[in-house]
């Protein structure tokens, strides 16, 4: 019994410690964004890495998500004779929920894992210590461009995902099932309001911050991992943890934001 209680207490303090460290890390990174000098080059390189290089996977998933939404939506709406609402069903689902969430999950898999591994290897090979000893703030030099890039790229990728998804739905709904083209777009136009778009933007901004925060801090504090962060196995284990934690956090925050903004 005592051992069990000890284990719970140990776990509690471990996670509290980790949460505190991550909180302070985020604070320093946000401070790093605000502190001059402002260098555009590293930020653009990160936007290219997180944003531009995720474009293909976003186009692909966006198109197929829109297509399957139209497929399922048409099947359900036909039962009640409301195929005309297909456009609004596809549009609302994508803009409010699926666009931001699936884009974020794709970016977690593609860029979040890479960021965690990159920072983790830098930690293991003393490159972060070297930066600190050179009086270069790693929060500003390494992390700030990634945070800015994440916050800029996610809404843009979500926008691309939504647009491609809507056209994917159009292909299936109008092209395959013969739903009226005007009804598809008119239904969407009349049902999607500014607050739906606003919700999508807020979600993608928050997800952008969360992805970079979790991935970068997991890599940065690799040496504090209880399971042992050193070596190639440590990096791979921490990267897996970062991906899982980011994905779960995104789904939890998706619910919270929806509940708050609804």
């Amino acid at each position: 019994m005592m051992k069990y209680l000890e284990k719970i207490g140990d776990d509690f303090f471990y996670y509290l410690d980790q949460a505190g460290r991550m909180g302070i890390f985020l604070f320093h990174c946000l401070l790093g964004i605000l502190k001059p000098p402002y260098k555009l080059g590293p930020t653009i390189r990160q936007i290219h890495f997180i944003g531009a290089r995720s474009l293909f996977v976003i186009l692909f998933t966006g198109a197929f998500t829109g297509m399957v939404l139209a497929l399922q939506g048409y099947y359900a709406l036909r039962k009640v004779g409301s195929e005309g609402f297909l456009g609004s069903a596809v549009g609302l689902s994508l803009i409010r929920e699926l666009g931001p969430v699936l884009t974020a999950l794709m970016v977690v898999g593609r860029a979040g894992s890479a960021i965690c591994a990159e920072i983790g290897i830098m930690r293991n090979s003393e490159q972060i210590d070297a930066l600190e000893c050179m009086a270069i703030d790693p929060h500003k030099y390494l992390m700030a461009p990634k945070f800015i890039a994440g916050i800029i790229s996610l809404p843009l990728l979500t926008f691309v995902f939504d647009v491609i998804g809507i056209f994917g739905g159009y292909l299936v709904g109008v092209g395959m099932f013969g739903v009226n083209e005007g009804a598809y777009f008119q239904g969407m136009y009349s049902s999607v309001e500014w607050r739906d778009i606003h919700m999508g933007i807020v979600k993608s901004l928050v997800f952008g911050l969360l992805i970079i925060w979790i991935a970068a801090s997991k890599g940065y504090f690799l040496h504090f991992e209880r399971s042992g962060g050193f070596g190639a196995e440590g990096v791979s284990r921490t990267t897996t943890n970062a991906v899982v934690l980011s994905s779960v956090t995104i789904l939890v925050w998706n619910y919270l934001i929806t509940a708050i903004l609804l």
């Binding site: 830098m122 003393e126 490159q127 210590d129 070297a130 000893c133 050179m134 009086a135």
Partner: peptide, 17 residues
């Protein structure tokens, strides 16, 4: 950071980027 501005360090595994 001010103190470290006067430092140079050669790490055991060099820690080159």
């Amino acid at each position: 950071k001010d103190v470290r501005k006067e430092y140079g360090v050669l790490f055991q595994n060099v820690a080159l980027f």
